[in-house]
Design a protein around this nucleic acid. Sequence first.
RNA 1: GGGCCCUUAGCUCAGUCCGGCUAGAGCGCUUCCCUGACACGGAAGAGGCCACUGGUUCAAGUCCAGUAGGGCCCACCA
Length: 854
Amino acid sequence: MPERPTLDGLEHKWRERWERDGVYRFDRTKPRDAVFSIDTPPPTVSGRLHSGHVFSYTHTDLIARYRRMTGREVFYPMGWDDNGLNVERRVQLMTGTIVDPSLAYDPDFKPPVPPDGPGQAKAKPIPVSRPNFIELCQQVVPQLEESYHELWSTIGLSVDWSHTYTTIGPRATRVSQLGFLRLLDRGIAYRAESPTLWDVDMRTSVAQAELQDREVPGAYYRLIFRGPLGEPLPIDTTRPELLAACVAMVAHPDDARYQGLFGQTATTPIFGVSVPIVAHELGDPEKGTGLAMVCTFGDTTDVTWWRDLNLDLRVLLQRDGRLRSVTWGEPPFQSMDPVRAQAAYDELAGKTAKQAHSRIVELLQQSGDLEGAPRPITHAVKFWENGTRPLEIVSSNQWFIRYPEKAVLLERGEELRWWPDFMRVRYENWVNGLIGDWNITRQRFFGVPFPIWYPIDEDGTIDYLAPISADPGTLPVDPTTVPAPGFTESQRNQPGGFAADPDVMDTWATSSMSPMIVTGWEEDADLFARTFPMDLRPQAHEIIRTWLFTSVVRAHYELDTIPWRNAAISGFIVDPDRKKLSKSAGNQEGDPTLLIARHGADALRYWAAQGRPGLDMTFDEGQMKIGRRLATKLLNASRFALNLGPDPRDRDPDTMPGAPLDRALLAGLASVVEEATANFEQFDYARALERTESFFWPFCDDYLELVKNRAYGDAGDPDRDSVLVTLRLALETFLKLFAPFLPFVTEEVWSWWKTGSIHRSDWPQAAFVKAAAGPPIADGLLETAGEVLSLIRKAKTKAQVSMRAPVANVSITAGRDKLALITIAEGDIRNAGVVESPLRLTEGEEFLVEAILV
RNA sequence: GGGCCCUUAGCUCAGUCCGGCUAGAGCGCUUCCCUGACACGGAAGAGGCCACUGGUUCAAGUCCAGUAGGGCCCACCA
């Protein structure tokens, strides 16, 4: 035991020791029911970790450590999500590059900013080939992963670092591709041309799950269409630039104003296109004039109308977000006045949607088809959650996974145990709101490629509807570097040859397979049998609709089961003003490395452990200070207990606590163990900590003071032996109860007097502690003794003297039962309060303590 | 528009499931104390219409109904 114990340096010392001794290494010889397997979220390695990560990952570690101490062999791997748009963006920014797929690989390429540098590129990004870019990604990503690993180890996550994976690595790629091919064989994965939500900056499709609504300013413009008799038919629109893409006018079937018009046609202003006037339930009489123009496509409602009403398709927006050139007078751009339409449209072609918007408003004003002034509004518009410009809808060819029936998905949600249970509702809401199937295609570069090629006919046309699958035995495969089965590389992109599928999978298409990736599905049958279905999926509530949901879908299809038995949903960290502390907004204060340096890892974990499962919590450094104080207290109280002398049981193994106060302490401790255990079983680590802590402080402040004098007594004195035995029992129990929360300080203290790691020791048994307490004793003994001591202290405080100041005598009035308790503890009370004469006890109604100082 | 969660001391939160003494803790604040585990400490004090309104009950912070505010999820997006 060190002369003067300190918390400083414990993180470094113990993480090395744990790694060296393999304390958290998974023993794969254990049978399934002795294993507790955890499907940890692979953090996106696109940025810095912030205190929100520490918060939720600590929660998982608390559960892991508890389960390990209860005897389960914990399977706790860690993944890195280095796949996807976020990483691409990060690498682009870091290195000052942007992919141009038309460029060839340049072996001597050097990015403007070296990938191992700390800075970010300032200048305009330079174009780079796809293979060069992937090389850059592969250089950047391991550095990020290492910094994450560093933090996770320092914060004390009891992960088995020999079980790690990356979502772009060979294992994850193989599982993703195999899963895809199996669904393709069963017709569950399919390829289709379809209107797709499209980010014009990143130039990729975006899945429903990655959408985010944002309130943005806009304006209603009232455009005058002409009815069958030339009468004006005003409509309101926020997107006049799509007028040329108008394919119909829609109103609600019950809208009296338009009853006579359904089935007739109207004419669009400027472009003179004849469009049908149709009825649809989604028409809203309350909105604008009750009559809407349908364009292909301005928003998702347009897509619904277009599908439901079998409307024409007039596509204007290209994938770069600009309006394409079209020829008026030719299908599908028939016009009553093609010359005028062409003249007007030529002013829009090539412009971005925003530029075209401004110009067409001018044109409409000139032609007199705009009624009144624009009316500014704010409205919700769909964005990619990381994007900067509103999403557009383009028509393109994508891979989809068909969802199971909603009823089936809801049933799976029922099978899963949710902690807290109300989070199930998020899942159910999402399932009930599903529209269409899951688009798993991303037009990106750094991701899992589809193991697919397409034949090219003699005319050089690629037949996207006749995909050629990879042989499952050859996975993982990159179709852009390996020729299709039955072809040679020389036939790539040649007439009569083949073309690789150019796209990559949505990141969730891979992440959804994480339970299978980590458990060795289709690769390590033995490991799989011992770990799947997994015991726990911990995750944030914001990705219930993505990660949790898609994982349920995949396990349902592949293995006809839920992927895990429990889903523990953690909340967010919020700023004091209740805003979510987002990744980008994660300020300097929330930098976990700084926080650890300032307060220590145990203190940070203490703060995190106060977050109730599923509830958001405020970032609060004050809580970390308290955590540090608790850790320091453990250190000092332990030093006191262990410095008193050798364990009396070394001399006589049968030594038991005899003094009533000691036995009362152990009895109280036994019920704390009972409660903490029950709480942990319900994944309520926060309450377990609270129960433990609220017994630990009186233990230090009252109990230790009360027994000090006995503890300093002569060796062999039974009263002293009783204290020493009790202290050791209590200390061991407290250390174990705190071990999941404060792994470093508890291990440190453990190492002073025990062998092995506390984190591989047994979780305390309430029955054992209770047995040590012996036969039941009167309730409230410890509390009453503490109460009297507190009142004596109060007198000293009032007199502004030291707590060591002697007290001449103490008069106590109390009920009979209470007096009995006080009598039992009188010796300890007098010693702790430095009372020089026997307590003067009087029976009475009220509880009064009067201390006369010397 | 539908749903979920939250609202308790200046601040951060327990307590609500399962109704029961005078509603708790810590931080902060005030005062005092360096005592042989700990000054990175200890002792004590002030501080509360338990968001609001009604109901059930002998009894409501706790149960029921509703209202308001905050957060989030879903839907809508002409």
